[in-house]
């Protein structure tokens, strides 16, 4: 299990990186944290002929408060995110999601940009960004554009990034006042990819009516799945047992997962409902608790 040969390029700036990818587009790949790519290379299931290493671009590693949103540089490591006060205070769902990612040594190296552009359907960040309506900033020699999460994730391990584009920044809207969130997943073991996971954020008014709800699932579709219909059933209500039970049922119906050696499709569907119920309950409790 040794990787095939490749040429190694080490840009120090974003302009250098986009120039390199433009020159080698097609057979080059960026490497961010490498926690998904290197295993694939060791199995020789991925064999880029050119590897452009983003790990020495200092400008891509930061967490900044920009008023309405926080901006996270694509090469910011998950360990930095889990330890960030800004993230914990302003985007608590991202903090929660980060703690569910694999294990400590993987988070030492893994980056938010790597996870999002790898777009594993079972990964925590894509679902979280989808739920929070985050924006991805992509750069190429052609310029810069901002892509909404709903347009960004595009099927299994696929995004709307063009071959010559690099993800440079993730813009995550701050949690509103009176909001609460929860990331809940079930996996066969601690740190494994979720059989089903839910990213949830709710916003309450003064009477504890749910005026805002954002829900997305991981592990149960070709990519992260926004649970719009479930949101519609919950928005404008207070969270009664009946509403919860309806949400659970609606979530079960909303996804179309595939079965594999770890779980049947039916079981993943069922778990989607259960995780939805649990995430909603926890998010609302947290919102109430904050008041």
């Amino acid at each position: 299990m040794k990787p095939a040969s490749f040429s190694y390029l080490l840009p120090k700036t974003v302009p250098e990186a986009v120039k390199m990818i433009a020159e080698h587009s097609g057979d080059a790949r960026f490497i961010a944290g490498g926690q998904s790519l290197v295993p694939m290379m060791n199995f020789r299931l991925a064999r880029p002929s050119v590897l452009i290493d983003l790990n020495r671009i200092p400008d891509l590693s930061y967490i900044k408060d920009r008023g309405d949103y926080i901006a996270v540089g694509a090469m910011t490591r998950e360990r930095m995110i889990e330890n960030s006060d800004i993230v914990r205070d302003m985007c608590p769902l991202v903090h929660d999601a980060t703690l569910n990612i694999a294990h400590l040594p993987i988070r030492s190296r893994g980056t938010i940009g790597g996870s999002i552009s790898n777009a594993d359907p079972a990964a925590e960040y894509p679902a979280t960004m989808l739920a929070l309506d985050a924006f991805m900033v992509a750069k190429s020699e052609r310029g810069e554009r901002e892509i909404g999460a709903a347009d960004f994730f595009d099927g299994v391990l696929s995004t709307s990034l063009e071959a010559d584009e690099i993800l440079t920044e993730v813009r995550i809207p701050k949690a509103p006042a009176n909001s609460g969130s929860a990331f809940i997943e079930i996996s066969r073991r601690q740190g494994d990819y979720a059989l089903a996971g839910i990213a949830a954020q709710v916003t309450l008014d003064d009477d504890e009516n749910i005026i805002g709800i954002q829900l997305a699932a991981c592990g149960v579709g070709p990519g992260p799945v926004r649970l719009n219909q479930v949101e519609d059933g919950v928005r404008g209500t207070t969270l009664t047992a009946e509403i919860l039970s309806n949400a659970k049922e609606a979530a079960t119906a909303a996804v179309d997962p595939e079965g594999d050696v770890h779980a049947t499709a039916a079981y993943r569907r069922k778990l989607t409902g259960v995780m939805t119920e649990r995430a909603l309950r926890k998010a609302v409790l947290r919102a109430v608790g904050k008041k």
Binding site: P39, F43, R188, R189, Q190, G191, D192, V261, H262
Partner: peptide, 16 residues
């Protein structure tokens, strides 16, 4: 064989 790596062949960890 469908479980040819440690991503699929799951051995107990400390938390299991």
């Amino acid at each position: 064989l469908l479980t040819g790596s440690f991503a699929d062949y799951l051995m107990p960890t400390a938390s299991d």
